[in-house]
């Protein structure tokens, strides 16, 4: 929808929709929540480090969820932790995005079989946009996942008509990992997790 209009002089004028303009801004400033639970968190840290340097993608870590657009679930989520993750997610402002990094967050990973305390997939608690496989995923894989997410952010419409279910990556357009199932935040129902008990 973007057009370039030449009004005559040397100036160039773009016309675009508000939505596209906002999406462009959002796409290039995906501030992420500095949230790491386990091993994948170290890779997340190294991705933010000098070699992979995700700053150049406009991604800057934020310590508080209220300033973050993106939550990268880096690491194992246990049953005890899950309700806190939900709380953090609820504290983020809309539109918010979730990347599930590593097998643990996707499906329980190496712990799904014999562990009694690991949540088998963070999508049981919060909707996930992009799943990145690996144990841990390489920084390149994480950046690939983020690029796929940017694609989604670009399509996101703030004022226009929204996707019915904007948070589910369908298997086909998720080339870097299969989508293990529909995000199931609705299942929470009455037993929705509580915030931290002081």
């Amino acid at each position: 929808m973007t057009e370039i209009i030449k009004p005559g002089n040397d100036e160039q004028v773009f016309t675009t929709t508000v939505d596209e303009f906002l999406a462009w801004g959002k796409e290039n400033s995906l501030f992420y929540l500095l949230f790491a639970t386990a091993c994948c968190g170290i890779e997340l840290m190294q991705t933010g480090g000098p070699r992979y340097d995700v700053d150049r993608l406009g991604m800057i870590p934020r310590a508080t969820p209220r300033q973050a657009d993106l939550m990268i679930i880096a690491g194992t989520i246990t049953h005890k932790m899950a309700s806190r993750v939900r709380t953090l997610w609820e504290q983020m402002t809309e539109p918010r995005w979730v990347v599930s990094m590593g097998s643990c967050a996707n499906s329980g990973g190496p712990f799904s079989k014999y562990s009694y305390s690991v949540l088998n997939g963070v999508d049981k608690y919060i909707p996930v946009d992009v799943y990145i496989p690996g144990c841990p995923p390489r920084p390149e894989a994480l950046i690939d996942g983020v690029m796929a997410l940017r694609e989604r952010v670009r399509k996101y419409r703030t004022v226009g008509i929204r996707d019915k279910d904007p948070h589910v990556v369908q298997g086909a357009d998720c080339a870097f990992g299969s989508h293990p199932g529909k995000a199931s935040s609705l299942e929470l129902g009455a037993s929705s997790p509580q915030g931290p008990k002081a």
Binding site: S83, Y116, N120, K124, L188, A190, S191
Partner: peptide
């Protein structure tokens, strides 16, 4: 646990 099934 907490109303969420343990298995996928």
């Amino acid at each position: 646990y907490n109303g969420v099934a343990h298995l996928r």
